[in-house]
Write a protein that binds this DNA or RNA. Structure first.
Lengths: 231, 231, 231, 231
DNA sequence: AATGAATGAGCCTTCATTCAT
DNA sequence: GATGAATGAAGGCTCATTCAT
C-alpha cells in the first residue's frame, strides 16, 4: 500500500472496502460466483450498489480480491509449521491435524474453504494464483514429511502417491461433506471429532506407508506408531 | 418410413429428447446449472428453444432428468459386483479399481462426474435421489468388504472410518483433478495409470487397515497382501 | 347447417366440437379471452391441442362461436315474453323478475353472463352481434312496458331514462357482484333472494315512475301498486 | 440546477416514476392487466424496460400503485361531503350528482374508471384495498342519507336495498357505457348531460323511496321533492 | 468520494400455431 | 379426420454496469 494514513476520507473508503470483501466472501461461498448478486453483497455490506464497481472495477475484480484475501488468511495458518525439529511421524500427525482443522473447523469463517471448493469445480482463473501461493507449498511440505518417513531410497513417484493418499483422506471430508451428512445425519465436525479423525487418518496412513518402506524403516515406524497411539 | 414399429409415434420425439439430454449433460457439466442457458442447450441439440419446456417442463426438469440419466449409467457398472465368492482383499482391489475407472476413465462422456462434482458444491436437490439410488449402496458395499477384512470384532464406527479413508483416496483424484493437473502437468488418467493408481490405493489401504485389526487377522492379511502384490 | 347426418365420423367430430365449446365457455368466462389458454380448453374438453385450430380456425374463431352460442341460449329464455295481455305493471314485474333470474340465478351455467360482462370491458367485436340479437330487443321490450305505464303523453327521452333506471338497478347486481359480496359476505343469489330483489325493484321503480306521470295516470298506478304489494 | 431543495435527490426519479404511472394507467385501462406489456408502458413513458422493476418491483406492483393512485384521486372528490347540515333530499341530490360526475365526466383522465371496471371482471387483489378505502365509506354515506330520508323506523335491510337501487342507476351508465353508446350513438356525457341525468335519478329515486316510507314521512318528502324540482 | 437512478442485454418461460404423419 | 411434436415470437423479469450529480 502506498498511500499514507493522513487522509480521513480514504479511511471510511477503506472501511467500506473491507465490509464489501467480508460480505462478498460469505455470499460468493454460499451462492457461487454467478449466482451471487452484487446487490446482495452491497446491501449486506451496507454499501451503495455502485460501490463494487467503484472499488474493484467489476464483479470479477471483487471476486479475485476476495479469493486472494482468503488465500492469504489460509497461508497465515500454515506459517506455524516450524516444527521441523520433531520426528517425521509426529510432524505428519500435526500436519494432518492442522489441515483437517483448516478444512473443517466450524468455528472459523467457513467461506474460505467453500470458496476454494467452488473454484475447483468452476475455475475463474484465480485458481493458479492459489496453487502457487498456498497449495503447492502445503503439498510440498507433506511430501517432505512422507519422504522423511519412507526414507531416502523410495522413488519420488511413490512418495507423491502416498502423499496423495493422505491428502485425499483429509480433503474428502471437506469436498464430500454434503454427501456425508446425508449418509450420516449425526455427523458433526466439532473440535473433538476433528481430532479423532486426525488420529484415525494418521494411524491409517502411517501403517499404510509401511507397505512402501524398505524393511529397515518399518521397524522404526512401528515403534513411532506405538508411541503415537499411546499419546 | 424406415423405422421399425417398436414405438412409431414417439420415436422421433425420443430422438429430440435424447439429443437434448446429451447436449444438456455436456453444457450443465461445463457451466453449471445457472450458467448454462437453455438457448445453448437447444442450439447444440439442434432443437427449438421451446423444446425443453415441451419435453421436460422447465430447465430444472431437464437438469433432474440429465442427472438421473447420468446416475443410471453409473449404476450399470456396479452390477458387476457378483464377485461375492472371492476373498475380501481381492474384492477390495476390484472395488477400488472399478470405482476409479468409473470416476476417471477419460474414454467415457466426461460430464457424468463433472455434473456430480458440481452437485456437491451447489446442490440443486437431486443430490438426495442420487445418494439413495447409487451412493449409499455403493458405500455399503465397501463397508461390507472392509468389515470382512477387519473381522467381526472391530466396531462399526472404526469400519466406517476405514471405508471413508479408502473412498477418500479414490474420490480425491476426481474432485481435485483441476489442482492435480496443475501441480503435475504430465498427469494423465488413461487406463494404465488408473490401474497403477488402483494398485497403489489397494496396497496402501490393505496395509493401513492392519492397524485396526486384531492380531490374529493381521497375519492372514499379510499373506493376502503378498499374493496381491505378486499378481 | 348443411351437412347431412349420414356421416358417422363427423358425429364424433361434432361431439369434440361441442365439448370444446362447452369447455371454452367456462374457461373464457373464468379467465378472459387472453388469459384462457387453448391448452387448458383442449385438455378440459379431452381434445387434442390442435383441435381448436382444426375446428375453429384459431382461438378467436372459437371465442366468437362460444359467444354466439351463449347469446342464442340467452335468447331462448326471452321467448317466454308472450304475456302481452297482462296489465303493464304486472308485465314490468315479470320482466324484472325474469331479467334478474337470467343475470343472477346461480343454478344456471354461470359463464353466459360472465362472458358478457367481460365483453363489455374488453370488446372483441362480437358485442355488436349481441346487441343486435339480444340486448336491443330486450331493452325495447322494457321501453314498451314503461311507455304503457307512463302513458302516451310522456316524451320518449323520459321513457328511455326511466327504462334505464330500471335496467340499471337490475344489472348492478350482476356487474358489481364482486364488490357486493365483499361489502356483505352473507349475500347470496338463490331463487328466493332473487324474487325478493325483483319485488323490491318493482316496487321502487313503479313508485319512482309516478314522478314522471301525468296526474291522471298516477292514480291508476297507485291502485296497481297496491295490488302488486298484496300479491 | 433550478429545482428547489424540497427533495433534490428523488425529484428526477420521481419524474420517471410519474411518467410510468401515467402511461401505465392508460395502457392498463385500454388493454387490461394481462394484455398490457411492460415494454409498451416503458416505451410510452420514455423509460427503460427495467425501470418498472426498479421503481415498482414488478408489473403487479406497478398495477397496484396505479390503481391506488386512481383511487386516491377519486377519494379527493369525496372530501366535499361536508354538507351534513343540509336536508337529506338535497344531500341525496348532491351525492348522486357528485357520484355521476366522478364516474362519467369525460374531462378527467378516462382510465380511472375503466381500470375499475376491469378490476370488477378480473380482480387482481387490489380490489379489496379499494373497497375498504373508498367504496365502503362512500356507500355508507349513501345509506346514511337514505336512512335519514326514510326515517328511523325503516329496517336496515330495506334501507340497504334502496341505497342499492340508487347506486345501481348511477353505476349503470359507467359499467354499461359500451352498450349504451351502441344503443344510442348520440349519447354523450358532457357536463350538462350528467346534470340532467343526476336530476332524473334524484327524482326517480326520491319518489321511489316513498314506497318504503311510513305515511308520516311521505308528506315531508313530497314537499321536499317539489322544492327540489323547482330548483 | 460516493450515490442511486437508469440502462440494455439476456435470461427462462409461455403461447398459439403449424405440419408431417 | 385427427394427432402431437415442433416452432418462433414475445412475455416478464434479473442483472451487472454506467453516468450525471
Amino acid at each position: 500500500m502506498i498511500k499514507t494514513n493522513t487522509s480521513p476520507p480514504s479511511d471510511i473508503g477503506q472501511a467500506t472496502r473491507d465490509r464489501l470483501l467480508s460480505a462478498a466472501g460469505q455470499i460468493f461461498a454460499d451462492h457461487g460466483f454467478q449466482n451471487a448478486t452484487v446487490r446482495d453483497i452491497c446491501s449486506r455490506a451496507g454499501a451503495n450498489i455502485a460501490a463494487i464497481n467503484y472499488h474493484f472495477g467489476d464483479k470479477q475484480g471483487l471476486y479475485s480480491e476476495v479469493f486472494l484475501y482468503a488465500c492469504s488468511l489460509a497461508a497465515d495458518n500454515d506459517t506455524a509449521k516450524a516444527d521441523s525439529g520433531l520426528p517425521a511421524p509426529e510432524r505428519l500427525r500435526r500436519h494432518i491435524s492442522a489441515f483437517l482443522a483448516h478444512l473443517l473447523d466450524e468455528g472459523r469463517p467457513a467461506w474460505h474453504s467453500k470458496l476454494m471448493a467452488r473454484e475447483l469445480v468452476e475455475p475463474t482463473g484465480v485458481l493458479d494464483d492459489l496453487i502457487g501461493h498456498s497449495i503447492r507449498p502445503h503439498f510440498q511440505g507433506l511430501i517432505d514429511i512422507v519422504s522423511a518417513i519412507l526414507g531416502p531410497t523410495v522413488p519420488a513417484d511413490v512418495v507423491q502417491r502416498c502423499a496423495t493418499s493422505i491428502v485425499g483422506q483429509c480433503v474428502f471430508f471437506h469436498n464430500s461433506r454434503p454427501i456425508l451428512v446425508r449418509l450420516d445425519p449425526e455427523l458433526r465436525f466439532g473440535h473433538d471429532q476433528i481430532e479423532a479423525l486426525a488420529a484415525h487418518i494418521t494411524t491409517f496412513s502411517l501403517t499404510g506407508l509401511t507397505a512402501f518402506m524398505p524393511a529397515r524403516e518399518v521397524r522404526k515406524s512401528a515403534a513411532a506408531l506405538k508411541r503415537a497411539n499411546h499419546a
